[in-house]
Amino acid sequence: MYHEHQLPCLHCHPHRYIRMVQHLIERCLLLRMSRDDCVEALAEHARIRPLVTLTVWKELIKENRDFFEAYYHAISPRPLNWRPIQRVSRFGRRKQWK
């Protein structure tokens, strides 16, 4: 059982606890949170020690390096001079009617 804990205990059920932390990290990823934001959120809302979150995060990176490279690229802030690419239709530019 969980002994007086509602959530799995790291000492009583380490495998369940780590899976729970992994699940919570995945939820943070769905919310497009950075690693630091995720660590802070789990510490505040789930009372998970930052060292535990960071350790699980690092293991997830080892297992899914390509995903995390794409993820970091997707959530990184754009440079200030960044402008979206303007697409030209496949028919080319049409003259404006006057």
Rank of each mutant, 00 (worst) to 15 (best):
R27C: 07
R83N: 05
V39M: 02
M1H: 09
P79Q: 02
P77F: 05
E59R: 08
L42H: 00
R19Q: 09
S76F: 04
R27H: 07
C9M: 05
A43P: 05
H13T: 14
E26K: 03
K62V: 10
L54Q: 05
P84F: 01
L42Y: 00
H13G: 09
P84Y: 00
T55D: 12
P14W: 00
F91W: 12
K95G: 09
P14H: 00
R49Q: 15
Y71W: 07
S34M: 05
L29Y: 01
W97E: 10
R27G: 06
K58C: 09
I48W: 02
H73V: 10
L42C: 02
F68N: 00
R35L: 05
C38M: 02
V21M: 04
T55I: 15
R65I: 13
I18P: 06
V88A: 11
A43W: 05
K98Y: 13
D36Y: 08
W57I: 00
R16G: 11
V39L: 03
P84C: 01
R93T: 08
A43R: 04
R35Y: 04
Q96R: 10
Q6M: 11
A74H: 08
D37F: 08
V88K: 08
L7T: 14
Y72V: 09
N81V: 07
R78I: 06
T55E: 10
E63V: 07
V56F: 01
L51V: 10
W97M: 14
F68D: 02
R27T: 06
H5Q: 11
A74Y: 06
S89I: 15
S89T: 14
L60M: 04
R93H: 09
P50L: 00
A70I: 11
P50Y: 00
L29C: 05
L51Y: 09
S76V: 06
S34P: 05
I48P: 00
E44H: 13
N81K: 07
R47S: 15
Q86W: 11
E59V: 07
E40I: 10
P77K: 06
R93K: 11
P50F: 01
M33A: 07
A70H: 12
M33F: 06
F67I: 03
R32W: 15
I61T: 04
K58D: 12
L29Q: 02
R27W: 06
T55K: 14
Y72R: 08
M20C: 14
E40D: 15
N81P: 06
Y17M: 05
D66T: 12
Q86V: 11
N81L: 07
L10E: 08
T53W: 01
V52H: 04
H5K: 12
I85Q: 04
N64D: 07
I61G: 02
H5A: 15
H5F: 15
F67V: 03
H73K: 12
C9F: 04
R47W: 14
V56C: 02
